[in-house]
């Protein structure tokens, strides 16, 4: 199960963001026009498919002087971000 809820300033991810669910996330992330906070507190799993979506969204937003801020990144998901070098290209905290 994967769910994504987009609020005015915040995006809440819940469940498992794998290759089967990444297209759903891609459509939403690539339509973002403004900086957002992305809350990972309820996300249980992410694979490279989900990382690819975040990377594409960040590239698009940073080109416009904006960007994503990732919060509640813990445990295994923090490990994946670190091993991918994503902690160098995202504001995590």
């Amino acid at each position: 199960m994967f769910d994504i809820v987009v609020g005015e300033h915040e995006i809440i991810l819940t469940g498992r963001l794998d290759a089967a669910e990444a297209e759903k996330a891609r459509g939403i992330f690539l339509s973002l026009e403004d900086a957002k906070v992305v809350d990972f507190g309820r996300l249980e799993y992410i694979s490279s498919a989900g990382l690819g979506v975040l990377l594409a969204a960040q590239k698009k937003l940073v080109d416009r002087g904006k960007g994503l801020r990732l919060i509640n990144v813990r445990g295994h998901i923090r490990d994946v971000f670190h091993l991918s070098g994503f902690d160098q290209i995202f504001d995590i905290g």
Binding site: S47, S48, A49, L51, G52, L55, A56, V80, L83, S84
Partner: peptide
């Protein structure tokens, strides 16, 4: 993003 999965 290509290659990231195998890298992990």
């Amino acid at each position: 993003s290509g290659g990231l999965g195998i890298h992990l």
